[in-house]
Design a binder for these strands. Structure first.
Lengths: 241, 241
DNA sequence: CGGTGACGTGTCGCATGCCACTCTCGCCCC
DNA sequence: GGGGCGAGAGTGGCATGCGACACGTCACCG
């Protein structure tokens, strides 16, 4: 038997497909779909589709509307604020912790992800870039030793991807993004937990500001992207830099 | 028609029942159950039970084992560490934020929850006490304006309840718990965001230490509850007080 | 001509059928 | 008597049946 034991369940495949469809915008935000239709398109029955949608609903990507269909939820400005406020609270401490706990495999994996990011950036391959960006962050989160934290933050990224993938380019080059990750990686390699945490904080904050400014601009028309939002709940004294 | 439109779906009822059963220990940690059995006991079909279990599985309370049944997961020491590390990272900033954003209704609700806690403590009604404890925290989390944060932290409490409800009494009286909440409430009422955040931090940390020490004692035998755990990832310089 | 109500279509939520797989237990062979 | 194996019961995962409800349409009535 050469048949590999890696028989991914139908449910998992459907979940991946639907998640990708929502993120890519193939299922437009705000639109309504029936489970039956989605099931037919995916070539499976309604059950696994419904179960996958339940999971997505728990994550906040869709919402069931009784006897009407399933609504693809849109990512509002407030959603972005929530996501980045949480990432600002969680990722820097996770990196601080990860720096001292990283084992050999994780360190190697982190370097590998970063290398892929660099390569993708040189090739101007946006999709691959963000793919490994996400995995870079995930390795760090898992290295913190807190699986719940890792899963939660990783899930938050889905919300952002829908807005971010195709728009981030406008305001920040792929090289800039790589540079921010390089800073984080270097400080981790140097064992500077505090510096790495601070670098991560700046990275997340920077990303947040660009995305939110852009989103606000898109909502309110061009030119008035300066919205008064404070994402950073971290400390007692906040000075808007 | 006086029939209220509040017809809770079967799924929601099943979800509540199963969650309560897991938390109360009626479904013992580590035990295996079939969907068919649970459905029969609840008087419904397999479908809503399965869907509710999928939600619980996403939350980490149970796990599906193919062709074997549904495993009720146990809360390990490490799980408690994860939960409280997250609560320490999230709840103090949430309270800091909530203090300045609390509206009239929320403030009233907060006072009401606290009053119920006091009353339950006087009546030595542990269950009602923890019920309103949870709602007290939830009001605060929601007042922070971050719904994702509120939902996430509230979900984390399920993990703790299973261990906490029947054991917390051993090391801390209900009055002590009320006192910690009174401190938080007073500082919020006084508009002292920083103080309230600090009080919340101490409250969570205190709860964590008691539960974890107790759990570690239960696991390793009595007398060696002094386990080296640092939950607090918050800042650069940690001094174990 | 405008409003209203009944009907038809489409949908979810719940129930049930079906299949492949796992585990157990007892029988049969050695 | 002991050990291996096969049949049966039980399970989750997927497919499908079924009823109640929401909404759009259109005919009918005022």
């Amino acid at each position: 038997m050469k048949q590999l034991p890696e028989t991914t369940s139908v449910n998992a495949q459907v979940l991946a497909s639907l998640r990708a469809a929502v993120i890519s915008g193939e299922l437009a935000p705000g639109s309504l779909h029936s489970v039956q239709n989605l099931a037919t398109q995916l070539g499976v029955s309604r059950t696994p589709v419904r179960e996958a949608l339940i999971k997505l609903a728990q994550q906040g990507m869709v919402r069931f509307e009784r006897n009407r269909g399933v609504r693809i939820l849109l990512t509002s400005l407030h959603d972005l604020e929530e996501v980045f406020a949480l990432r600002l609270l969680l990722e820097p401490p996770a990196v601080r912790r990860a720096t001292t706990r990283l084992d050999g495999n994780q360190r190697r994996e982190l370097r590998r992800m970063f290398a892929h990011m660099e390569k993708a950036a040189r090739a101007d391959d946006e999709f691959t870039m963000f793919e490994h960006d996400r995995r870079f962050h995930r390795v760090l989160l898992e290295a913190s030793g807190n699986a719940r934290l890792a899963a939660f933050v990783d899930g938050l990224r889905d919300m952002v991807l829908r807005r971010g993938v195709s728009t981030a380019r406008a305001s920040r080059s792929l090289d800039d993004i790589v540079a921010e990750h390089r800073a984080i990686l270097d400080l981790i390699e140097a064992g500077d937990a505090e510096g790495a945490a601070k670098a991560m904080r700046e990275h997340v904050r920077h990303t947040a500001e660009l995305l939110i400014a852009q989103e606000a601009g898109a909502d309110l028309g061009p030119g008035l992207a300066a919205v008064d939002i404070d994402l950073d709940w971290t400390g007692p004294a906040r000075d808007h830099d």
